[in-house]
Design a binder for these strands. Structure first.
Length: 627
DNA sequence: AGAGGGGTTGCTGAC
DNA sequence: GGTCAGCAACCCCTC
């Protein structure tokens, strides 16, 4: 029998060390091995992912390519600029491989993509080998050992993991790689529809990348930001396997830090250097193996003795949470990413609910504007001009650097959802998807559900304050001064509450606190806070209490057909989403959120808001007298 | 099997 | 300045 001719398809496993999939490819003792990467129109246009994450991806690709070349001067990472679904059938014919090998992906899009590719391979008589490798344990395995259910707590994940057995020991990087085979690409191109382009804002030039399948010089070069029409990245954080391994070694040298790490005791305000490892983007792109991390940290923890920290707060605990979210996503698929249809996600009548595709039931990435006030709050939150310096500093750091500390993410997520704006967690989730360099669908979705108290976590009465939480970690406001330079000269006393600053102090600090943050920004000004936080916190908490007592989950018929409204009789019960056009506009009597005209349509948003506040107060009083 | 303890990461004010 | 109860009271896990 002829020797195997193997295509190794790199995706988010951009490393040579501890790759069970790459090892499986090499175990075939192939005659030729093509290390390839394919462009994916989904990530280029349909999934949000700003220029900063692209930069990190490029770093990982370039580093990997160089490492491959070090093992075989004839080889490198060959980038093919076409979507895998249309490319592979043609590649199978043109290159005549015997095997296609890649690492398992369990996120919703990844699964559907790989199914198409595997089917095409089968039709072409090519053997497909898929190996898990993104997580500590195979996520499908975890689900299976948890009764087919998603893991919704860290105890559940740990119990399932225990049943499977110890995390696999890391595999060393290969010492050599076979030559690549011929790579004819004289077949017809499929150029994807670039519209709608969720990343259009990042393109200052035309996206020319798809003009040539093997790049402008025909050498399968790694793309550049220029070719994608992107402006330069702003993030200082750089990727690559080499860098990842260096950061890991540096971390492990500090035995005390590694062994006694307690996440809740690391500061969200610390930067340069930050208080946590910042390894998350490397895990996302697979530039660092999470199992290598696990075992190397484990070693240090074991040798450190009793003073070491333990999960869930410890470093090991952090990667356990990652596996928990992956297994929840693996079990629920696309439903995991939204409330509607998700049996494990509480239904809360947030403002700015997602539009859904009537065919699939899936959210479209667009939202209903049920309330102009909430829309304005959402826009100010995203732009980092809420008038709350702690929130604004974090949002600006996030946009610029693509990374903020975990507790910073907690602060801004709580603020947007249950602890301030009462805006749908799916809105915030989309912004993080766009901006985070470490964006991992499962973890991002899971954490937004956690913070909004719709799944994983329920203690909605624990609410982050945009003033106190910042003060607790950063009394003098260094993070604010760094990211909100308008306030850099403000006295410590007012740094988290500039609206309390008397005029003479404003003058001295060279800033005027005025405006709504959305109108044209005036030099030397900082916006007024967009609401009274304590007032909003009380309204939101009462509304959460009410929604919890109604007790609907995302898969409930009442949620899907719109009759949930009968359970939230009127806006004066508590905060509840307002009116908006249905997704299924044709039949008003039978639409998704269909309901009788209730006489509110003529009222303004502010009138409704007034009713909410008054109603909340009277309701809570009523409850007290009943008790 | 119902109760009680615990849950990575809240805030406030009293001592 | 550090600890702790009270806030009002969620769900999960274990015994």
């Amino acid at each position: 029998m002829a020797k195997p001719r193997v295509i190794y398809w790199f995706r988010t496993d951009l490393r040579l060390h501890d790759s069970p999939a790459l090892q499986a490819a090499l175990d075939l003792e192939p005659e030729v091995l093509w290390p390839i990467f394919t462009w994916d129109p989904h990530y280029l246009y349909k999934a949000r992912g700003g220029v900063n994450r692209w930069q990190f991806l490029l770093d990982c690709q370039n580093d990997l390519s160089q490492s491959i070349t070090k093992l075989n001067k004839n080889s490198k990472l060959f980038v093919l600029r076409e979507g895998p679904q249309t490319l592979f059938p043609k590649l199978f014919k043109a290159w005549k491989p015997t095997h296609l090998v890649f690492e398992k992906d369990t996120d919703a899009y990844g699964r559907s993509r790989d199914e198409v590719v595997a089917k095409a391979a089968k039709a072409a008589g090519i053997q497909v080998i898929i190996q898990p490798g993104r997580t500590l344990w195979d996520s499908d395995d975890i689900v299976q050992h948890h009764g087919g259910e998603p893991t919704m707590s860290i105890t559940q994940l740990q119990a399932a993991g225990k049943k499977i057995g110890p995390v696999a020991k890391p595999i060393p990087a290969p010492e050599s790689l076979p030559d690549p085979g011929d790579m004819p690409v004289d077949f017809e191109r499929h150029v994807p529809e670039g519209k709608p382009d969720f990343n259009a804002d990042y393109r200052s030039e035309e996206d020319t990348g798809y003009k040539h399948i093997a790049g402008p010089n025909g050498d399968f070069a790694i793309e550049t930001l220029d070719e994608l029409g992107f402006s330069p990245a702003t993030t200082p954080h750089r990727g690559g396997e080499t860098r990842a391994l260096e950061i890991l070694e540096d971390l492990l040298k500090d035995k005390k830090y590694t062994a006694t790490f307690q996440k809740p005791k690391t500061s969200p305000a610390q930067f340069n250097p930050q208080s946590t490892t910042l390894l998350s983007p490397f895990f996302h792109f697979g530039a660092l193996s999470v199992r290598l991390f696990y075992w190397r940290v484990h070693e240090i923890v074991e040798s450190y003795g009793k003073a070491a920290s333990s999960p869930p707060e410890s470093l090991i605990g952090q990667v356990l949470f990652r596996d928990m979210y992956f297994a929840a996503h693996a079990a629920l698929g696309a439903s995991f990413g939204q409330t509607a249809t998700n049996p494990h996600c509480r239904f809360i009548p947030w403002h700015l609910p997602s539009k859904r595709d009537p065919e699939t039931g899936l959210i479209t990435g667009d939202h209903h504007i049920d309330d102009q006030q909430a829309e304005a709050w959402f826009r100010r939150w995203k732009a980092g001009v809420t008038g709350f310096p702690w929130i604004d500093a974090l949002m600006r750091q996030l946009r610029h650097d693509g990374w903020i500390h975990h507790l910073g993410r907690h602060s801004v997520a709580c603020f947007l959802t249950r602890g301030g704006c009462y805006v749908d967690w799916e809105r915030g989730c989309e912004v993080f998807e766009e901006w985070l360099i470490d964006h991992e669908p499962a973890c991002n979705i899971g954490n937004w559900q956690w913070l909004s108290c719709t799944a994983f976590f329920t203690q909605y009465f624990r609410c982050y304050s945009p003033v106190s939480f910042g003060q607790k970690w950063d009394k003098s406001g260094e993070l604010v001064r760094r990211w909100v330079p308008e306030l850099s000269r403000v006295k410590e006393k007012y740094i988290y509450e500039p609206w309390k600053m008397p005029l003479p102090d404003q003058k001295e600090a060279g800033v005027r606190v005025t405006g709504d943050g959305l109108s044209e920004h005036q030099e030397g000004t900082y916006p007024k806070p967009m609401f009274d936080f304590n007032e909003r916190r009380n309204i939101c908490m009462a509304a959460m209490k009410n929604a919890y007592s109604v007790g609907l989950y995302g898969n409930d018929d009442k949620v899907l057909d719109g009759s949930w409204r009968t359970l939230f009789p009127s806006p004066d019960e508590a905060e509840v989403m307002g009116e908006y056009e249905s997704d299924y506009g044709e039949n008003a009597d039978n639409n998704e959120y269909g309901h009788e005209q209730d006489g509110l349509d003529g009222e303004t948003a502010s009138n409704k808001r007034g009713a909410e506040k008054n109603g909340t107060d009277s309701k809570s009083k009523k409850r007290k007298t009943e008790a």
